[in-house]
Design a protein around this nucleic acid. Sequence first.
DNA 1: CAAAGTAGTCAACCAAGTTGTCTAACCTTA
DNA 2: TAAGGTTAGACAACTTGGTTGACTACTTTG
Lengths: 149, 149
Amino acid sequence: MEPVPMLLAMTYRAMGDQFHDRLRQIGLEPLRPAHGYVFRFLKERRATTVDIGQHLGVTKQAAAKIVSELDEWGYVLREPHPTDKRAQYVTLTTKGRDYLKLADNLWSDLEGEMAEAIGEDTVATIRQGLAAYLRHVHGEDRPGLRPVW
Amino acid sequence: MEPVPMLLAMTYRAMGDQFHDRLRQIGLEPLRPAHGYVFRFLKERRATTVDIGQHLGVTKQAAAKIVSELDEWGYVLREPHPTDKRAQYVTLTTKGRDYLKLADNLWSDLEGEMAEAIGEDTVATIRQGLAAYLRHVHGEDRPGLRPVW
DNA sequence: CAAAGTAGTCAACCAAGTTGTCTAACCTTA
DNA sequence: TAAGGTTAGACAACTTGGTTGACTACTTTG
């Protein structure tokens, strides 16, 4: 019997691959999961590079690299911090928000296909079960995402 | 609402981190998930480096690196292939089998703790649901594991 | 107002993959 | 059975996505 985490990893991979394929068909920049997590993070708040690094669970230098890419591609922009002259706020551009909408649609398509395959209630149980487990392990403050393999 | 794959990744990470912590307390070599997948693969069969690469979903060169490490640490050994003079069979040593037992115990501990937190039936549903989804996507022949982020 | 701490950048390094190339052995198949 | 194509494994150069460390400019605190 396989350990549950192996099933989690394989499922993540299977869905992620499909997501990525469809994105590529649309012809977007080579966005990686980390970029998506940044979008999702910035949707709700303004944040500095350091904040983003913290959220992803990587160093600020790694976060800076990701932010630069997103900036080059026009998904985010950096504006001066109102009170702290060292810092910059990173914010989503319209292109960034559009991407996020597109991605959410793709994800919910994929989730719909999953529901067709194994039943809507099963998907709901999985969602709630995992969320509950994460709350159990981490409390309310979830730690960074971070590479997985 | 978060996409399901994000929950999968976070849960994988949470369980994997705990697993890794406990392993480290025991003081083993710095085994990575890929090593574990190799053990699990070799448990059932004898295989060449190329086979292993295929199973992991990486190039044979990458697989060779992993096999070398396992060999250095004494978890596997390479013996000549009986009929093909180019090839070598990689097989688990006793140390390898012992590790696998230990790892399985750790995983089932973790799964037990998960069951305590969210209910045994929920865990069962998750397990069966994900397995069914994977069969749906891949048929019987599951593709390689592979990096996830 | 001095000392300690922090945001961002630059640079060197590292780990774990990749591609490309080569040799020796294997497998048609004409 | 020799010839041409394929394959296992090794070696090397490179790529990617991260790391640590050092430095400057600014901020916060005692």
